[in-house]
Computed example of a mutant assay.
Amino acid sequence: MSFSGERIKKMLPKVYLRNHVAHEIYTALTHFKKLEPVMDLYVYNDGTKKNLMSLTGTIPVLYDDNPYNIPVCVWLEETYPQSAPICYVRPTREMMVLRGKYISSNGEVMLPYLEEWKHGNCDLVSLLQVMAAMFGDYPPVCMQPQPESTEQTSCWLQFQRESEVSMTDESLYMYLNREDGQPFLQENETNC
């Protein structure tokens, strides 16, 4: 679906800096074709809910010279561009989040670019480029283990792609819960 700057502007509530935000979103969409603007309900950690604009879809990532599409959601608060976007990796049902250096266990993206956000120096296109580069170095998702598989699963991580490729990174940890929802005891933890 094609989004014009004017169409995006009409989607934005008046509390946003509509001209500026619509222009940034439109520019981001010209570079990242698999994202789309969506007004949706965002729930903050304290339970507060707000309708916010987001860019939802996938961004292309290059890992080991192979392309992957990483599902993301980039939320823009009403104070954007003065405040940094809130970014999440949004795994499909077949995927799971890999908690790591820049990703929390709930999929929140925590990049220095976001922490050091300055209006006028930072923008959506640059943020998405930083995310794509960082995800190429520190992949944020892997495929869910297949419970019906009787073969022993290795610690190689598979990423969503037309033909799946494996990789590993010593700085990533995979945390799994038992069938009863409780975490494994320390002696059962695996560091891949």
Rank of each mutant, 00 (worst) to 15 (best):
D137Q: 14
N106I: 14
A28P: 09
I8R: 08
I86F: 02
T92D: 12
A84F: 04
W156N: 11
R178D: 06
M174A: 04
M143Q: 08
W117G: 05
T190P: 00
N19L: 05
V72M: 01
P37H: 09
K10A: 13
Q182P: 00
P140C: 10
V15H: 08
P71M: 01
Y16N: 06
P71V: 01
K118L: 10
K101C: 01
L127M: 09
N188Y: 15
G136E: 05
M110S: 09
T190Q: 15
S105F: 04
K10L: 13
E108K: 15
F159K: 04
D123N: 15
Q129Y: 09
P67E: 06
R7T: 06
F32Q: 02
F32I: 07
N191R: 14
N66I: 12
R99M: 14
C155E: 08
I86V: 15
F159R: 05
E108C: 06
V61Y: 02
N69D: 14
M167W: 12
L41W: 02
G100E: 04
S166R: 12
E189M: 14
N66V: 12
G47L: 02
R99K: 15
G136I: 05
A22H: 03
P85N: 04
C73S: 09
I86C: 05
S54C: 08
V61L: 05
N191G: 03
S105K: 11
P147H: 06
P85G: 04
Q129V: 08
K118A: 07
D65I: 06
M1K: 10
I86S: 08
T79G: 03
L12R: 09
L124F: 07
R93W: 04
A22W: 03
I70H: 00
Y113F: 15
M95Y: 01
N51C: 02
L124H: 06
V43Y: 00
L185H: 12
I8T: 03
E115H: 13
Q146A: 06
E162D: 13
S166K: 13
L127D: 05
Y42N: 01
D40R: 09
L12T: 03
G120R: 11
K10E: 14
Y26G: 03
K118C: 06
L17S: 10
Q129L: 14
Y68R: 02
K33S: 11
V141H: 01
N191H: 15
R99D: 07
F3M: 07
V43S: 06
I103G: 00
M96E: 13
R93T: 04
T27V: 13
E24T: 03
R90P: 00
Q160G: 09
G136Q: 07
R90Y: 03
S4W: 10
L12Q: 07
K49E: 13
E78H: 13
I8Q: 04
P37F: 10
M174V: 15
C87S: 12
L17N: 11
E187T: 07
E151D: 11
P71E: 01
V74D: 00
Y44H: 10
E189W: 15
V61I: 14
K50C: 07
T168H: 11
W117P: 05
V141R: 01
L185Q: 13
A133P: 00
Q146M: 09
E116T: 13
Y26I: 02
Y16P: 02
M131F: 06
L17I: 08
L172E: 01
P183G: 04
V130I: 15
V97C: 06
Y138A: 02
S83N: 11
D169V: 08
V165T: 10
I103S: 02
